[in-house]
Nucleic acid binder design. Sequence first.
DNA 1: GGTGATATGTTATAATATATCATTTCTTGA
DNA 2: TCAAGAAATGATATATTATAACATATCACC
Lengths: 158, 158
Amino acid sequence: MTDLFPKKGHDHDRCIDSAIAQAEKVCEAENARFTDMRRKVFSLIWQSHKAVTAYELLDALQAEGQRVQPPTVYRALEFLTDLGLVHRIESLNAYFGCDQPDCDHLGQYFICTRCGRVAETVDEDVSIAVRKAAKQVGFKIEATTVEIKGLCHDCTTH
Amino acid sequence: MTDLFPKKGHDHDRCIDSAIAQAEKVCEAENARFTDMRRKVFSLIWQSHKAVTAYELLDALQAEGQRVQPPTVYRALEFLTDLGLVHRIESLNAYFGCDQPDCDHLGQYFICTRCGRVAETVDEDVSIAVRKAAKQVGFKIEATTVEIKGLCHDCTTH
DNA sequence: GGTGATATGTTATAATATATCATTTCTTGA
DNA sequence: TCAAGAAATGATATATTATAACATATCACC
């Protein structure tokens, strides 16, 4: 068993730094501008391993004294999700930082209902099973949403 | 290949009647009241094989001259989803009539982005793969959301 | 430095959902 | 049968999530 969720007391600054470094790389590769606002939103999303709502981001930005409105946040989110740097968690109406931006809309999300954390995995067997199920019914997949709610390993044992 | 989606020109009244009959059975078994409002909402949901939003239901009820407000619709939806008679499609914020109410939150939903129809399946291989992926990371599943967007068979061929 | 493209600001509003308390309807037991 | 409590719905207000539309600012490139 390998827990996908980060250990308590891990060096979260490293998570943030690495995510930002990766985002910079992706933006450069895509010739997309990682503006201050986008960087700020991305970094706020990465403040925790939980999914964050657009209005929580808005509040955080406003708390820093910026005069930000909802469209600004939603635009940044759209930019980041289009690049695969952030995923929308449909069942939470919230947004989550992706640490494997090349996963191309095929990941699965584990959402802990106790601690609120989210973890992403790209499990081949799940993808294969979903593709097979689709093929069986003649369905051409464009995108999949796989969200699994329950208790993370920490929360089942503590 | 067996298309999950109903054929064009199928006798949809039979879908509705059968869904209502099944709902009555479930309610009786659960000792739950299938009131006029709940029956009305359920039947509206079954008017098509698409997912329907709460406000579409509200509009439809109001169009019939009833003075209905949002909470009434949401209460009926909560009742129906709790019994497994209706599923919420998270990625659409919409509700869909379930024809296998005993599937216990483990179904998968195919959502056609062209015709808007939804079809449900309970694929063992997908469930097994998801459960295995969860086990591998020490995650205790409470509920799963599997929603697959793309083109149904009709829409790929016509 | 001017110009077009891109990004953000601003205002307003749409779409989805729930909290709260009042009223009605149903069930059940005396 | 009817009184009391439970369950459902009505009514009002408001919270939460998201977007449309147009103005202004910033950037990239010539």
